[in-house]
Structure formats: structure tokens, C-alpha cells
Design a protein around this nucleic acid. Structure first.
Lengths: 196, 196
DNA sequence: TTGATTTTGTTCAATTTTCAACATATTGGG
DNA sequence: CCCAATATGTTGAAAATTGAACAAAATCAA
């Protein structure tokens, strides 16, 4: 349950991500990674079987760190806690150089997809415990919210965080609240509009 | 002749300097340094005998790196090479977080003094090989130039580098050129003004 | 001042990283 | 296609780092 990445692994990850920001995954060599990380080439093989395993572990590791910033003790809250949401944005802001590469790195949509998946888990829980208008397809709802939130985060990061975490949190909460209100109280209108 | 600081030493140095930016030298403990550097406390003692030795080595190391950015192969040029001057400013810009603490850190004027000394060496060489008006006291000249250049660098760094390295280089070269011209051609005027 | 707490400096066994060498595989230019 | 250069993956011995324990010194609040 170590909250920190072991020193050597971390420097290898960071070198690897740095390189991913510069060139495509296939063009990156273990030699480059080791050199950039100030680590012996053998040490890389001590931690990872090959380049692909390194990519896997890198993604899982940073996804897990991100997850911890959302839900420190696996707490799934019905109402997205403002405090937790804020700590997530702040975490991303802090580690922007890493996550902006991971989330929109050239030719590696794996992280993006895994992050979507993770977000989906949270959203599903949120939806399930909300008493929304049963006329709305839950699957559609989940998809819509997940892709929306993930995309919003991505936009925020690749545009070098044009606004403060606090503002983003307010925006997100406002969006969610409006949506929920709209879907419970005026659910029927939505259907009418859709069919007209 | 390793151009790089060994990994562990570097992280200890960086942790130490970071702490120097936050509190006075006396208040810093080896425990803190080791923890901040993600290094075992014993490892610190493996490299340094104590806190004071760490300070010494830290200063000498970073002074030496700075020196290399000025004179890559110990080359003392009569005319300060624009290229070298630029590379120095760029080096300082790159490592601003480190050098701005070192040069104006709370209660540790050692680095500042040692840097002055180093600058003095270069200036002395420069003066000696210039054919300035013999009426000007060489000692005074050296002192004036050394303190001027060092102070200019310090100002630039602690003010978060308000202008680009190129501009600074142009400014410095302009200053030196004017001074030299003024002292050779119009040396006597200077004396007259001084005594009037 | 006293006593509790933290820091210091040292030791040594266990662990991790490095280094050099090796055979093999892959790549890219002529 | 061929060949030279580069990258890969593995090995074992050497070197560096860690972790834990220890006694002594320094710090600090009561």
C-alpha cells in the first residue's frame, strides 16, 4: 500500500513519458529510456520484461494514482464531493506534464480508454443511486457523462489548464446539478422534444 | 571528469537547496534532507561527513558547473565571447531554482562570495590583457567589474529573469564595450571629472 | 534543571543497482 | 540484398543503497 512510486521505477516512468511526448511509442528504445532516466539498462529489465510491459505498468500506475486522488479510500459517493473533485483537479494540475502526455499521447489511446473505464465506474455508481427519470436509458446516460467528464479533463490539460481547479470544479458541479434537475423534473419534456 | 552529478548526490543536493530556500541552514536537519531526497539517512553520511561538509560540497559542485558553462575547456578569452556569455545566462535560466537560492539564500553568503571570487579571476584576466589607461587602478577596476557582473546576475535571477538571456548578454556586452572605450580614449576626462 | 523527544553518527546484513560481457535480433543505408 | 551499426535480453560479480539497531548528543518544553 505504498502511496509513492519506488524511486527507480519513477525515474524510468518519467523518462518514458517524457519520450512519449517527443516521439511515437515504437520509435522509443530501452536504451533511450535508461539513458534519460539515469539508470543502467539492466535495471530497466530488472523492473520490466520489455517495452510493452513498461507501458502497461506505467499506465496502471498513474491511473491508480489518479484514482486515489478521486477516491482516497475507495469511497464511492452518491453526490460527487466538492472536496474530492477539487483534489483531483489539483492533483492533475500538479502532474500536468505527465498526465497531459498520457491522456493524449501520440498513438497510445490505451491510457485514455482505461481512464474512461475508470470514470465510468464512478459514474455508474452515481447514476444508480440517483433517482433519475426511468425513461432515460441508463447505459446512454453513463456513456454520455463518462465521455463528457473525461473529455473535459483532457481539454483542460492539453490547453495548459486555462482556468483554476476551483473554477473547473464549480463548472462540473453546475453541469451535473443542472442535468440532474433537468432529467428528474422535466424528464418528459426531454422526450417530447426528442420525438418532435 | 564527469560532467554530471551522480544521481544520489544530486538528489541530496537538490533537497538541501530546496530546504535552504525555506529555512535557515542551522534549522535544517539531516533527517529532513534524507527524507526530502528520498534517500536513506545513512546514504547521506556515505557521501558527506556532516551538514557542513554537505554545504561545502554543494557550493563547490554548483560553482564548478557554473564555471563550466562560462569556460567549457578552461578557455580564458580576452574578449568575452558572446557565445559563451549567452550559454552562461541560458544555463542559469535553466537552473534558476537552484542558483537563485544559492546566490541569495538566507544566511549563506558563502556561495555568493565564492562566485564573486570566480568572476574576479575571469575579470582579472580580461583586464590584464586589455590595454586600458594606466591611470586607472587595476585593483579598483577588477573589483568594480566583478561586483557589477555578479550583482547583475543575482538581480536577474532573484527577479525571476525579467528578460531573455539574449537581451542580458547584449546589455552586458554593451556595458563592457562602453566602459572600455571610455577608459582608453577618454581616460583623462574621467580623471578630470573625478577631481572637479 | 529534568526528562522526554529528536537528531546524530556508526555499524552490518540484506537488498538493489551497476557494470561488463555475451549472443542474438533488428534496423537502416548503400 | 548485405553489412555495419544499433538494440535486445541475460548473466554473475562488484558496488551502492537500504533498513534496523545502537549509543551519544542536542533540543525543547515543563
Amino acid at each position: 500500500m505504498d502511496r509513492r512510486i519506488a524511486k527507480t521505477r519513477q525515474s524510468i516512468f518519467e523518462a518514458f513519458i517524457e519520450l512519449m511526448g517527443e516521439k511515437s511509442f515504437e520509435k522509443i528504445t530501452i536504451n533511450e529510456i535508461a539513458e534519460r532516466a539515469n539508470v543502467n539498462r539492466g535495471t530497466v529489465y530488472l523492473h520490466f520484461t520489455d517495452k510493452y510491459n513498461l507501458l502497461d505498468q506505467c499506465i496502471e500506475t498513474y491511473l491508480h494514482l489518479l484514482e486515489e486522488s478521486c477516491m482516497p479510500d475507495g469511497a464511492l459517493n452518491r453526490v460527487p464531493s466538492k472536496k474530492l473533485l477539487l483534489s483531483t483537479f489539483e492533483f492533475l494540475e500538479q502532474n500536468a506534464t505527465i498526465y497531459s502526455v498520457l491522456i493524449s499521447g501520440q498513438g497510445v489511446p490505451v491510457f485514455r480508454n482505461r481512464m474512461m473505464e475508470m470514470t465510468k465506474q464512478g459514474v455508474e455508481q452515481y447514476i444508480k443511486e440517483s433517482d433519475l427519470n426511468p425513461g432515460v436509458n441508463e447505459e446512454v446516460m453513463v456513456q454520455f457523462l463518462s465521455v463528457g467528464i473525461t473529455g473535459l479533463l483532457e481539454w483542460w490539460m492539453v490547453h495548459s489548464m486555462p482556468c483554476k481547479p476551483e473554477e473547473m470544479v464549480d463548472q462540473v458541479l453546475l453541469l451535473l446539478a443542472s442535468l440532474e434537475r433537468g432529467l428528474t423534473v422535466q424528464g418528459s419534456h426531454l422526450f417530447i422534444n426528442r420525438n418532435s
